[in-house]
Design a protein around this nucleic acid. Structure first.
Lengths: 146, 146
DNA sequence: GCTATTCACGACCAATCTGGTAGACATTGT
DNA sequence: ACAATGTCTACCAGATTGGTCGTGAATAGC
């Protein structure tokens, strides 16, 4: 599995923040409830997202979390890389050349797949994910907003 | 990382077997030496490949391992799935529907990436990997045959 | 200044996977 | 018989995942 629930949870949380953009800070407990993420685990993910510059937070009553930049300027690739580390399918495509590339014998196959993946993920912004979710809500009964 | 060294090692071993197709059984120790794989670990991988029907083996002196079917009939997708399990980037694309799909919100992005990956991996046979390696050997000094 | 609310951070933990070692055992060619 | 070879099971250390918990720090409202 390329993505663990860490990446999944992190993206869900970011979608939640993006969806409430402009409504003031969103509390961790609210995100956890709406997106079905264990709150204490979400704590770690938000810390990671904050350190990576995607989220800023406000302490104290009425505090919570906010996007650190517009949802249009955050793409899925950068978000997932911040949460999961490199998405390279193979060690030898990792960028950090380890010297093991010559033996592998498959890297020419995977390079193309990796490029395709990165292109696709770069082209999808957080805003697009929110749009997609809103689109989906109109045809399905279940939704995650209050 | 989608692939661990398990998949990498396993494919390397299969390339080695394919390269010596028609020359009788290839011994584990030989594969391990040529492909730089710890022999006792290779043991496990060969067992896995045998159980998956890609390899058959012969005991006793002069014994060793052979491809169970022609290198043209083995594609990288099936090989890697046998070694690594599902290559689905996300749980919700795994085939074994777990009921968590509705929340994820990214599956529409990943489905396309996954399809592309599977198509590419299906189109590459073990024979093609060997061809590619032979091609490469002509331009590089290092090679792994005796 | 007190208090309630909220985030920040680090310690800890269990389960799983990866990568690997070791040894006993089965098979078979000579 | 014996040496070469594969088969199988048990075991192990380290990393990662997916958490929990408790303490502490900031701050809004009173």
């Amino acid at each position: 599995m390329l993505l663990s629930t860490k990446g999944d949870y992190g993206v869900r949380a970011m979608i939640d923040l993006a969806k409430h953009e402009g409504e003031g800070p969103v509390q961790r407990a609210e995100i956890a409830r709406r997106r079905q993420i264990p709150e204490s685990y979400l704590d770690h993910l938000l810390a990671q997202l904050r350190r990576a510059g995607f989220v800023r937070s406000v302490r104290g009553p009425g505090g919570g979390h906010l996007l650190a930049k517009p949802a249009e300027d955050i793409c899925l690739l950068h978000l997932l890389e911040a949460l999961e580390g490199s998405l390279a399918p193979l060690q030898c495509l990792d960028g950090a050349e380890t010297g093991a590339e010559a033996i592998c014998g498959q890297e020419w196959v995977w390079q193309e797949i990796y490029d395709n993946m990165r292109n696709k993920l770069s082209s999808v912004s957080l805003a697009a994910l929110v749009d997609h979710e809103r689109e989906h809500e109109r045809s399905v009964t279940i939704n995650y907003s209050i």
